[in-house]
Computed example of a mutant assay.
Amino acid sequence: MIANILTANFNIIIIKFLQQFSNPFLDKLAELITMTGEQYFSIGAILIIYLCINKNLGYKLGFASLFSNSINGLVKNIFKVPRPIGTSGIRSLRLETAGGYSFPSGHTQNASVFWTNLMKNIHKHWIYIVGTIMILGVALSRLYLGVHRPVDVFFGFVIGFLSMAVVNRIFDFKDGAGNIYGLLVLVVIVCIITINYGNLDLYKQFGSITGFFVGYLIESKFIRFREKASYIQNVIKVFIASIGCLILELGLKAILPNLKVFEFFRYFIIILWVTIGTTYIIKRFKIYL
């Protein structure tokens, strides 16, 4: 019953309607917009926000994104809905971003988590306008590119929004213990998901959220770096974090066996570098105002 709804013909009718307007310009525009829903965009934006703009918002974005991605992996593995790729009358582009199952849309989830977090925490009219446009843009781009159905992007938005709401509610606790216990529950949930449906991506998410949790505990209690800095200092901070991540990413990948447990360890260490290593350097050498 549910599978029939998720793959119902109205999904294909909507995709074909959008694709009737296809042209080279819209193809490029859709590919450009869909890139803002990819993890590399989110990672880069969260890194900059965390180190340079608003540390607390960076934590909210990081935890919400990692939790959301794990829920995405869980739902995909439960329903195992194939993508519309190859359906008669559907043209599919940017297939390198269309691996795995279709439901729900990870790109739409990423956009939803990111922009609704900004809307929730930065009460500016332009954020609401830009955020709404970007979420709708990513969702429509996935349909236009023929790699998702309307139900995929709708539930991608819903799961992303709920993930944002849960994490922000946890951070609304006034005492530190409330934050810690709430975040620990998220880590445990991701752990259970990973053990039961553990593909490679889920182990990466588990390692990342565990590293983020440990880093949050240590940085909040012992380091407490300050984000406010000059333009040059912000460039230095992002460079230190990025070069360290690159070295750890390539170095650990070269020396560790290609096993899921080591993917957990690799991403755990990379996130610790950002949350503890980089922030310690920032405070130690006073790379702030």
Rank of each mutant, 00 (worst) to 15 (best):
S92D: 07
P82L: 00
R91L: 14
S70V: 09
G58N: 12
S68F: 13
S70P: 10
K80H: 03
R94F: 14
I78A: 13
S42C: 01
I71D: 05
E38K: 04
N69T: 11
K55N: 12
S70T: 06
L93H: 13
S68T: 10
G89L: 12
N77K: 09
I48V: 15
L47G: 12
F41K: 06
K80P: 00
S88F: 15
L95D: 11
I43H: 01
G62I: 06
I53V: 08
Y40P: 03
V81D: 08
I90L: 11
F79A: 03
S88R: 10
T87I: 04
K80Y: 00
S70R: 04
Q39Y: 13
R91A: 12
F79K: 07
F63M: 03
Q39V: 09
M35K: 15
G89Q: 05
A64K: 09
I49A: 09
L74M: 15
V81F: 00
L51H: 03
I85P: 05
Y40W: 15
T87C: 02
G58T: 13
E38V: 09
K60D: 06
A64C: 09
A64G: 11
L95C: 08
F41N: 04
P84M: 03
F67E: 00
G86F: 14
A45G: 01
K55L: 08
N54W: 07
S92W: 14
V75H: 06
A64T: 07
K55H: 14
E38Q: 07
G37E: 09
F79C: 05
G58L: 11
G62R: 05
I46H: 07
K60V: 06
T36S: 12
L51R: 01
R94V: 00
P82C: 02
I90S: 04
R91G: 07
A45N: 04
P82N: 00
L57P: 02
L66F: 15
S65R: 00
C52E: 01
